[in-house]
């Protein structure tokens, strides 16, 4: 928010009653929005740390009651969590690197005004944003080339997204043409121009795209579900789904006897612990990269 923008707002006291009421409503709405957003996270963390008995008596509503790390220990001791964490780490790391390399390889030629295939290739990529063969043929192709139950399936079918290429292309188009001309006069070929001029000068955009790609890789659940049936290859999101959603024997336990209810309570605590462990990496990163995020959405608004 720029300072000049706010200059039209005087101090609160000097305002008319109507304005005061209006601003009051604005503040209430914003604070309400913040509370609504935060509450689920706070509640999950509180349950994860609270005393199991307090949780089962329904005493936890906002802040933790007591302290009980048993559920954390139980989850941490479970090997499958670490296996899936490791898998997701590698899928995210290598996936994002490959995404960025391929995006550069696609965006740079498309950003060269003279490139004789520019229009055709542009359409070739853009068309995939609007029409797709759908799930079944894609499934046939991916399994047909032998990627089923291969860790590569988490990386190769999503090497590059046409939309992100368009964003990067705009960024590279905005680099001054003279720089490339100079480079050419010095005898640089296009690979050199890409690595020495285009990539360094579009670093902010690359950071944004890298972030988007990384979040998408980290959160990807569907690819794993379709193509990875071996548990030792599955990503974190699939592990989470098993714990959080499928293994809900809720209804049975609800009808069951008290010691089952106690078991249900510890399952619930375990679930909340899993949510905490899975979201912490993302929630830690987000505030730091916020300015890039905002920038990134603006990039998307630029005509592709």
């Amino acid at each position: 928010m720029s300072k000049t923008k706010m200059s039209h707002l005087g101090t609160f006291r000097s305002r008319s009653t109507g304005d005061k009421v209006f601003l009051l409503i604005v503040y209430i709405l914003v604070i309400f929005a913040v509370c609504i957003t935060l509450y689920p996270f706070v509640y999950v963390v509180s349950v994860a740390f609270s005393d199991a008995k307090a949780v089962s008596r329904g005493e936890v509503f906002l802040l933790p009651v007591g302290l009980d790390l048993e559920a954390f220990q139980m989850v941490m001791q479970y090997d499958q969590l670490w296996v899936s964490y490791r898998n997701t780490f590698f899928y995210t790391l290598f996936g994002t690197i490959c995404n960025l390399i391929f995006s550069c390889l696609a965006a740079y030629p498309l950003s060269r005004h003279h490139f004789f295939m520019r229009k055709k290739l542009n359409f070739f990529l853009a068309f995939t944003m609007y029409f797709s063969g759908g799930l079944i043929p894609a499934y046939m192709v991916v399994t047909g080339i032998g990627l089923y139950n291969s860790p590569l399936v988490m990386i190769i079918p999503h090497l590059v997204s046409a939309y992100n290429v368009m964003i990067l292309r705009s960024a590279m188009e905005s680099i001054s043409e003279e720089l490339f001309e100079c480079g050419k006069l010095e005898g640089a070929n296009d690979f050199t121009l890409l690595t020495k001029i285009a990539i360094p000068l579009s670093k902010p955009t690359l950071a944004v795209l890298g972030l988007y790609y990384a979040v998408a890789r980290y959160n990807d659940f569907f690819t794993g579900m379709l193509y990875l049936s071996k548990q030792e290859l599955q990503p974190l999101q699939m592990f989470l789904r098993r714990i959080l959603i499928i293994a809900s024997t809720e209804i049975l336990q609800n009808a069951g006897i008290t010691d089952r209810a106690a078991a249900a309570q510890s399952t619930m605590k375990i679930r909340y612990v899993c949510i905490v462990l899975a979201t912490v990496p993302i929630l830690c990163i987000c505030p730091f990269v916020q300015k890039y995020l905002v920038k990134g959405t603006m990039l998307g608004a630029v005509k592709g």
């Binding site: 959160n219 789904r241 714990i243 959080l244 959603i245 899975a278 993302i282 987000c286």
Partner: peptide, 9 residues
Amino acid sequence: FISTVVVVG
């Protein structure tokens, strides 16, 4: 930025 799995969970 939270995954769909976590939101639904």
